[in-house]
Amino acid sequence: MLENKNKKVLPTLREGAGSLLIVLIALSAVIALSLILSKNPGKTLGYFFLGPLQSRYYFGNMLNSAIPLIFGGLGVSLAMQSGNFNLGGEGQIYGGALITTLCTIYFAPLGIVGALLALFAGASTAGALAGFSGFLRMKWNTSELITSFLISNAVLLVVNYLIAGPFLDPSTSLIATRKIPETFRLSALLPPSNLSTALFFALVAVITVHIYLYKTKSGYELRMTGLNSRFAKYGGINTKKFIVLPMFLSGFLYGLGGGFAIYGTYFASIKEFSAGMGWNGLAVALIAKNKPSAVIPAALFFAYIEAGARSAMLHSDVTFEIAAIVQSIVFFLISSEVLLTLFEKKRRPA
């Protein structure tokens, strides 16, 4: 048994070396950008790399911004492990969040049950949006990648309308719905930062998805379908089911991410509050290579870059958007077969 473990560790390290190289390239990009753009690169770099770790406020906010990324990353990973693409995260988070907000307000008298129902309703709505794309692919082989994106775009617009129209809270200057009752808000973890106990739910979600994928029959069948659907079909697995189900679950997780953003951070559906979260969730899943356990470090890395950029912006003379440049460099290289296999020994079967 021990011998097996050792055999597993080495290839993992080698696979990791490629990712590490990419992280190093990204970090050198930070240094290069500071040298070019900043009058005081030393200071900028100091704040960039150490800022997020120095105060409770920055550290808490960094962790908080990782939460929706974790949910989104899990959602995308699940879909990708089954061989499906979910490109509709933006609409699914936003839609899920709105339904959760509204249901919470209506179900408030039910107490904790109401909260659970509201989260479930929001997540299921988002799940249905993604699941529909899965259904279309199963039924007529319509590209789920394009349809999930189209549906998401339409949903974004409709939700915008609903927030600005029928459900607008006229009492604030924001374009937003009413806030959820205070009793439903998750407690803060590191005040004055935005971090809430939603973090724990995110960790629970990671563990749940990990267990589902690797410890249950359904998760096993899902992965087999994704790895080689001809083999899965040959083995007697109902491969059609594993087009719709993973897409539904993927949307469900995105929706949960939206719901917890409401419960932990925003307390109301604010117009376009979740813009970019869907895409970033996708990015996190790609960096994590669709492994649930790797979603946490990937989300933290993504959040760290953003927090570092924010800290450097506040205390030095660069702007926050350098984060996007650094992230995009990671993105550019993360799927490169050439770079990732640079360190892998060519696998030659014995």
């Binding site: 096993y220 992965r223 087999m224 790895l227 080689n228 001809r230 083999f231 899965a232 040959y234 083995g235 007697g236 697995i237």
Partner: peptide, 18 residues
Amino acid sequence: LHIGSSLKATVQENIIVG
């Protein structure tokens, strides 16, 4: 190689299919 087994999956995952 393409139907009878799933090359990236482990031996035991290949064993229990179905």
